[in-house]
Design a protein around this nucleic acid. Structure first.
Lengths: 341, 341
DNA sequence: TTGTATGCGTTATCAA
DNA sequence: TTGATAACGCATACAA
């Protein structure tokens, strides 16, 4: 920006017309001779003219920019979300500002203010867990906001969330379909909404098949491979043998798979395994590769961005308050049955 | 932005002064009575006045904004890099635009143009590998650019890269220090600059200890756990027994660790293992947890951003053309010897 | 000490 | 068809 950027005045001078004419030609607005059109376009071209978006935005009261504020650190969830968001925003020629995530409300506040000062057209708020959190402070403005993979408490804001219940159900149904009858569930900490919802869905699937989840076969613990490992030991303490385990995350599933193998149990012959996340680097490297539930974070992000776009366009009324984004079953080899597809 | 944002005029009216005065007070510029100071500040406060950054930037010819253009997809490298970049930029009150990464020069071109139109103060270009790539097209402007974890070919641009050679050296020295004498190296594809540099550093360490890398003990393959697994088999075909393996990535190391254990070889008692990346989710979950080389991507990003800041401030001359960011040895349990620390 | 006027780069209205 | 000119919101030099 130091080397005096070329402005519309430069183009006008070069083309021998007024700035008004240049503006019209470049925006295909109003009428003008074919000849001036060519002259203007050529001058603009040769000068490598780039209209100053700052000036445009100032005038249009629209910046073609959205802010992405992330809570709880950038993590593995942010990436696919961001990917999806950009996929939706890019065609609309909107750029995105990212903010260093923070748990501190004061910092968050500062970031939001900075974003508002830059007159972003809207905000997307993400998190690394779907539990309710205080909504962002909009300082009384009516800036469009959508929460993606995040949920504001006591607010009418629109949010798009993964359908964790549906994911659990999908896992249960798949296992049941394959003829498994003794299903266990090893998952994360119960204070996660996601943990509770996934289990509900799983139990629902069992119920529909006239079964239920044996309390001895439900284990909640940390989100780690080590926990999966340990859980297998606990499961094995109980007499009757399970023939399938639905895991609350791919990491847990991987720990489970390793532990099973080390104890001489075969996957999927003896025990079928379903993971959760479809975190490629884990799921594909597990032996055998994990059949898992994909929360489809990328399309979720895309949908969130689309909603925001609609709101910015003034179609606020058309977008639902809370959207449950469906999960997808990804079949690899940990349940067998891939031939069925 | 729809609900007519409050402007400096509103504040002026509320405070009963002119906009010039408001501006001066709010920016602590020039002189004014304590009384008007209070009145203005109060009005601004109660109106929740946020100066329009667009207008400010237009005037100052400075947007306090940088563009982050990423090639080759957002990946696990982008996150720590981005984290570091924001850490450095946030205190300077600069915001960052991210661009959907792409390999397509045409799309990249469009993104850069969009960024330039928004009058970003500078650009950071990242990649997921350090190999040389064509520089970004700046359209003849003198916009400050720094390449982070990326390298432009035939360009004088500044770039900051991990010191992969140093990383390899660190690994070798550590193993040697612990008394290992028969060192193998299982790494990624040789067309990666990083693979070649890490090996060079490793060999250098061996050389300094009067040893050299046995060609039979050097194996190059894909960046995967499966390859680590397979490599162990190959290594074992050769008669003499190695007592340490330096792996080109944590993923490879994990595959190696699993294979070793399955063949009854103990880590670190029989074989010491050093990984590369310090990718927590892999390194910490490996059994035993991996001692590994940390390329310190976060501080690398931070340094890149600091350089950019310096360049934007006009101190271009003070920043070196290419910076090699040092790696760090992270000791866990795969080499033993943690007691030494 | 305070207010007015000008410029920043566009777009848009309205005469010419 | 084209060219002045007035916003847009702010900062600042200069006049009052």
């Amino acid at each position: 920006m130091l080397k005096a950027a070329v402005t519309i005045h430069d183009v006008a001078k070069a083309a021998g017309v007024s700035i008004g004419t240049v503006s019209k030609v470049l925006n295909n607005q109003g009428r003008f001779t074919e000849e001036t059109r060519i002259r203007v376009r050529q001058s603009a071209e040769s000068l490598r003219f780039q209209p100053n978006a700052l000036a445009q935005s100032l005038h249009q009261k629209r910046s073609y920019t959205v802010g992405l504020v992330s809570r709880d650190s950038f993590g593995r969830f942010s990436l696919p979300l961001l990917e999806g968001i950009e996929n939706a925003l890019d065609p609309a020629r909107m750029a995105v500002f990212v903010c260093k995530p923070t748990d501190d409300p004061v910092h968050e506040r500062r970031h939001i203010e900075s974003l508002m000062a830059k007159r972003v057209d809207g905000l997307i708020v993400t998190s690394r867990r779907t539990d309710k959190r205080p909504p962002v402070d909009l300082a009384g403005t009516s800036m469009p906001v959508v929460y993606a993979y995040a949920q504001p408490e006591g607010s009418e804001a629109v949010c798009v969330l993964p359908d964790d219940r549906g994911g659990g159900q999908l896992a249960g149904q798949h296992l049941l379909c394959l003829g498994r009858t003794a299903l266990a569930h090893v998952t994360g900490p119960e204070h996660f909404t996601a943990v509770r919802e996934r289990r509900q869905g799983f139990e629902e699937a069992l119920r529909e098949a006239g079964r239920s989840l044996d309390p001895d076969w439900y284990l909640s613990g940390p989100w780690s491979e080590a926990w999966g490992h340990e859980a297998v030991g606990r499961l094995l303490e109980h007499g009757p043998r399970f023939d399938a385990i639905f895991c609350g995350s791919d990491q847990i599933a991987r720990g489970v798979a390793d532990a099973l193998r080390e104890r001489g149990l075969r996957v999927p012959e003896d025990v079928a395994l379903v993971g959760y996340d479809n975190w490629d680097i884990i799921a594909a490297a597990t032996r055998p590769p994990l059949t898992t539930i994909d929360p489809c974070l990328e399309t979720l992000g895309q949908q969130a961005a689309s909603c925001l776009l609609a709101m910015i366009a003034g179609a606020e009324a058309t977008v639902p308050r809370v959207i449950r984004h469906p999960c997808r079953l990804v079949v690899r080899q940990s349940c067998g049955g891939e031939a069925l597809l």
